[in-house]
Simulated assay, not measured.
Amino acid sequence: MNTNVIPVGSLGGEQVQSVLTSATAAPSLHNSQPWRFRLTPAAIELYADTTRAVGVADPQHRELLLSCGAALLNLRVAIRALGVHPDVQLLPDTARPDLLAVVRPQGHSVVTPLDRRLAAAIGHRRTNRMPFSSTKVDASLLDGLRQVAKLEQSWMATPDAARLPLLRTLIRQAHETQQRDPAFVGEWSHWTGRGPDSPDGVPSRTAGPLPEDQDEWVLRDFSDGQARPRVNGKDFEPNPAIAVIGTFHDLPLAHLQAGQGMQRVLLTATADGLSASFLSAVVEVTETRKQLRDLVVGGLWPQAVLRLGYGSPVPATPRRELEDMLDGGQRVANSART
């Protein structure tokens, strides 16, 4: 169903629908899509939808805020690509902690080649859980990703070769800790291995093959036991490029900023021809996150760990209908699906 929405600021109704669709293409923990929007004549308000929280893996809603920050970055990029300036206010009302951002599309701005490049990447970005090739990511590309993270008050660290074995050990420890928790396993089964008609969660078709070797970087089975057999010769790459997104503090503002930094890195990586997936267990388990902080990011708080490389195309994960992400009363009219 296509949802007709009201004009907002300098954007017409169809443009509002377009930029909201771009916003909801952001990644989220287990594809939970924990965001909702409210429209006023002057602003798009972004809220955390805590009813869609992944409570066991993310009890403090840190990853929920990262996801909403990624959606916010997509929204900003999409608005700028229309030649409109997105004026953004983060956490504007302490009495409404679920109100994460107010975006006022107002006035006009010159659309730069970078605006177009990032906007085009929104529709092509995927979480790629398949094995990557053994081709090494050039250092110049990683340097560029570090620079774009800084634009969002975030920092990206790339562990050197000496630290990678220790990091892999931490990832394995975190994975094993979670697998010993029946509540985590039950929650994991709820969100993964979804059928083709599910509008959220991780469908089996995007889950990737089941890892076979505990020394591999990718340990999680997103298929809930339905993974297809490994193709001979298509092992997970032994030494992917690893990027850790970090912040100077660990308050909600930092989580929103890190989500925007993470998404700017992901969109830039996509535009550069790179694939990416998440190694989230190590930042979900308290003890391994603390050790990761000491190991990699020099005292910064690690917020997300990315695996980067060159992968084959993968299908997109599904998204809920836009009307289901808008507050009641925001739908002006509905028209039949085309």
Rank of each mutant, 00 (worst) to 15 (best):
V231S: 05
L295T: 01
A119R: 12
G233I: 01
R129V: 01
Q89D: 05
L266H: 04
L82F: 03
T270Y: 06
L253R: 15
P182N: 09
V110D: 15
D272K: 08
L99S: 03
E287A: 15
Q179K: 14
R146K: 13
P86Q: 06
L114C: 11
S22D: 15
A281S: 13
E237D: 13
G83V: 08
R104C: 13
S18A: 15
D272F: 06
P318F: 04
S67T: 06
R205M: 00
V296L: 12
H255Q: 10
N334Y: 11
R76T: 09
R38C: 02
R168Y: 09
P196G: 03
A95D: 11
K290S: 07
R307E: 11
T158N: 13
L266G: 09
V148P: 01
L167I: 08
Q147H: 09
M325I: 06
Q89N: 00
R319Y: 12
G13D: 10
I171C: 15
T112R: 01
L253E: 14
W217F: 08
R116A: 10
R194W: 06
H124N: 13
D224G: 00
I79G: 05
V282T: 14
I171H: 10
L29G: 10
A95Q: 09
R96N: 10
R80N: 12
V231D: 05
F184D: 00
A258S: 11
R168C: 05
L166C: 08
D93Y: 00
P315F: 00
G298A: 07
L46N: 08
T206H: 02
A157W: 11
L167E: 09
G123T: 04
R194N: 07
